[in-house]
């Protein structure tokens, strides 16, 4: 008997890997060179070199890390909730982080240092994680987790809307609204340095728990005999998700759709095995967000568009196409 697993991945992946690398590289080069056609990767003056090192590279790395974090978080959440429509915002972590950041700006809790706001945001994400843990109960059943997450997300969104409505300064209101839709404009190395360790730790945790995550292809009734310490593994996975989503929100705001769409794009090319889905979603998420930010940078708009606008503009039609494809397949199957 041949091993279908080896055959399948070798047969499909190489074309996609090549295409993926070429496309990502093209977008990365376009991203670095946007706005000025006289230089690309080799700046001729000291000022160009400074722009490249202090603005372009951190922005590219930050947007790539954000895409990786959201793509991976989306795949993990869809797998553990066994729901293809789940996305990172569903567990309330992003609302918690955003609420604390906006509250800090509103009440002036921030210290005069670039680190204070991201650190507060991460504290908000961890607070939401703690609340999720308490509300979901010790059993951490999927349905209770989901309901607790939805409740936290709804509460966070409501409080955010309240704070935004009460904002005394209309410019602050506009700025916060734009931030909430996701942006990596005016970010520097400090944001990359916040995002990088969080992402690395989270990826390590999720890699450690990859078998537990992929075991969610089976019904929950089978978990008792699959050899996992369910509670410990669940907490570890949620903590990993908190780091990914929290760091993403504090460094770039709430970027929608990437976490939802990236796993579906991976499935679209025939990769369905949960473990492969996780890492491919991370890679596709990173690549897509680089592409989206490149579009944002090249678009001749008066003010830079939030990333969330472009991801929604591209993501919604893709989602509708997937829905149509799913419905057609169901009809054919019936």
């Amino acid at each position: 008997m041949t091993n279908p697993r080896v055959n399948k991945s070798a047969g499909i992946s190489w074309w996609w890997v090549t295409l993926f690398i070429v496309l990502t590289s093209c977008f990365a080069v376009l991203h670095l060179g946007s706005g000025d056609s006289t230089w690309w990767l080799w700046p001729s003056t000291a000022l160009d070199a400074q722009i490249l090192m202090d603005i372009r590279w951190p922005r590219l790395l930050l947007v790539c890390l954000n895409g990786i974090a959201l793509g991976l978080a989306g795949a993990v959440i869809q797998t553990i909730f066994r729901n293809p429509l789940a996305e990172p915002g569903i567990i309330g972590i992003s609302s918690g982080a955003a609420l604390v950041v906006v509250s800090a700006l509103y009440f002036g809790w921030i210290l005069p240092t670039a680190w204070s706001l991201p650190v507060l945001g991460m504290a908000g994400a961890l607070g939401a994680f703690g609340l999720l843990w308490v509300l979901a109960g010790r059993s951490l059943q999927t349905i209770r987790l989901l309901l607790a997450g939805v409740a936290i997300a709804a509460l966070g969104s409501a409080l955010l809307a309240l704070i935004l409505s009460l904002a005394p300064n209309p410019f602050a209101f506009q700025e916060w609204t734009l931030w909430l839709m996701g942006s990596v404009a005016n970010r520097g190395w400090e944001h990359v340095l916040l995002m990088l360790p969080s992402t690395c730790i989270a990826v390590s945790i999720l890699f450690w728990q990859r078998h537990f995550i992929s075991a969610h292809v089976f019904a929950s009734s089978q978990f008792a005999v699959l050899g996992f310490n369910h509670h410990r593994a669940q907490v570890a996975v949620l903590f990993g998700l908190t780091l990914l989503v929290g760091a993403s929100v504090v460094s770039a705001g709430m970027i929608g759709f990437i976490g939802l769409i990236a796993p579906h794009l991976v499935r679209l090319v025939g990769i369905h095995r949960p473990r492969a889905l996780l890492w491919w979603s991370a890679a596709v998420g990173g690549s897509c967000l680089v592409a989206v930010d490149t579009i944002v940078m090249w678009l001749p708009t008066r003010q830079e568009l939030p990333l969330g606008v472009i991801t929604a503009l591209f993501g919604a039609p893709i989602l509708l196409y997937l829905l149509h494809r799913f419905a057609a397949r169901e009809a054919g199957h019936a």
């Binding site: 797998t79 292809v217 089976f218 019904a219 050899g227 499935r267 095995r273 949960p274």
Partner: peptide, 24 residues
């Protein structure tokens, strides 16, 4: 353990599912 209502939540092949079942 063969549960009363087994189910699967991924569009994977029979062999791939059997590989998943060898976990741990």
């Amino acid at each position: 353990y063969i549960p009363q209502q087994p189910s699967v939540f991924a569009d994977i092949t029979v062999t791939e599912l059997l590989y998943e079942a060898t976990v741990n």
